[in-house]
């Protein structure tokens, strides 16, 4: 069986702190998984390793059966594994539309495999693709606003939108709802999930809010001190005693 993403025995230590300690995780194509765990459990470290920002000390990472361990972020992106960031990584000085045009052009070029110093970045094709993302992520109203002028939630949407542009097979969202006002979190996740509904993409999102996890995840993976504490259908995993004790805080 070729999985969208498979991590085998990942280990990573920072000065003796085990941020990943024999982590094995499988994500199947099309499923929506939530990754939860207390602060410092190693969730971001996992995403960083999978997307090539960090090299695991040991272990193997595969995507669609192809080994991607140790590749650079840009190479992994081109192989269809993309991510968003805990703190949005967008171009603050550019308008939202321009942000997406950069992303679209890079994605198009990746497809065309040619660098063109003279092809207009605002060509019709690129604009259409950027427009499509603006609409899908409900960003049309802010298209001319600079990224540093819009709300945290809007910036988050832009961040996810940029990660989606190349139609990844696996999308890792690092705390998409952090920085989003609490009464807007559901609306925010609705936008994200609707936007992704038509993509054939496996989504893994890191989340601290269990209401969100319950509502959107098919499956939950729980990290604790760099290890996988639980992995299963959402309610099953959340009802496990040690998960309640160490992570969700609703001790039995």
């Amino acid at each position: 069986m070729i999985e969208a993403l498979e991590a085998r025995g990942l280990k990573k230590a920072f000065n003796g702190v085990k941020a990943a300690d024999d982590v094995s995780v499988v994500i199947r194509s099309g499923e929506i998984v939530s990754l939860i765990g207390a602060n410092g459990a190693g969730k971001t470290t996992f995403v960083n390793m999978v997307t090539g920002y960090l090299k695991p000390d040991s272990g193997t990472i595969l995507s669609q059966g192809r080994e991607i361990t140790g590749l650079k972020p840009r190479e992994i992106t081109r192989l269809g594994v993309c991510r968003s960031f805990q703190i949005p990584q967008v171009f603050n000085d550019l308008s939202l539309e321009e942000n997406l045009l950069v992303a679209v052009n890079v994605a198009l070029k990746g497809a065309a495999r040619s660098h063109s110093p003279l092809r207009n970045a605002g060509n019709r094709n690129a604009r259409q693709m950027a427009d499509e993302i603006l609409v899908r992520f409900k960003l049309e109203d802010y298209r001319h606003n600079r990224a540093n002028e819009v709300s945290g939630g809007t910036r988050k949407l832009l961040d996810v939108g940029m990660a989606t542009i190349s139609h990844p097979r696996v999308l890792l969202l690092d705390e998409p709802t952090s920085g989003v006002a609490s009464n807007e979190k559901f609306a925010f996740m609705d936008v994200v999930m609707n936007a992704l509904a038509d993509e054939e993409v496996a989504v893994m999102f890191i989340e601290h809010d269990m209401d969100i996890v319950r509502r959107y995840a098919h499956r939950v993976i729980v990290f604790h001190e760099g290890r996988v504490l639980a992995d299963g259908a959402t309610e099953d995993a959340l009802n496990q005693d040690d998960v309640k004790r160490y992570v969700t805080g609703s001790a039995a």
């Binding site: 997307t51 650079k72 972020p73 840009r74 992106t77 081109r78 993309c82 991510r83 960031f85 990584q89 967008v90 171009f91 603050n92 000085d93 550019l94 321009e98 942000n99 045009l101 950069v102 992303a103 052009n105 890079v106 994605a107 198009l108 070029k109 990746g110 660098h115 063109s116 110093p117 003279l118 092809r119 207009n120 970045a121 605002g122 690129a126 940029m162 990660a163 542009i165 190349s166």
Partner: peptide, 23 residues
């Protein structure tokens, strides 16, 4: 005004994003 020119102008803002876009 080109794709590379536009991407260049965004280097100062966020290199990480560019790398993660595949550049």
């Amino acid at each position: 005004k080109s794709e590379m020119g536009l991407a260049s102008a965004s280097v100062k803002d966020c290199e990480i994003r560019l790398e993660y876009l595949g550049l």
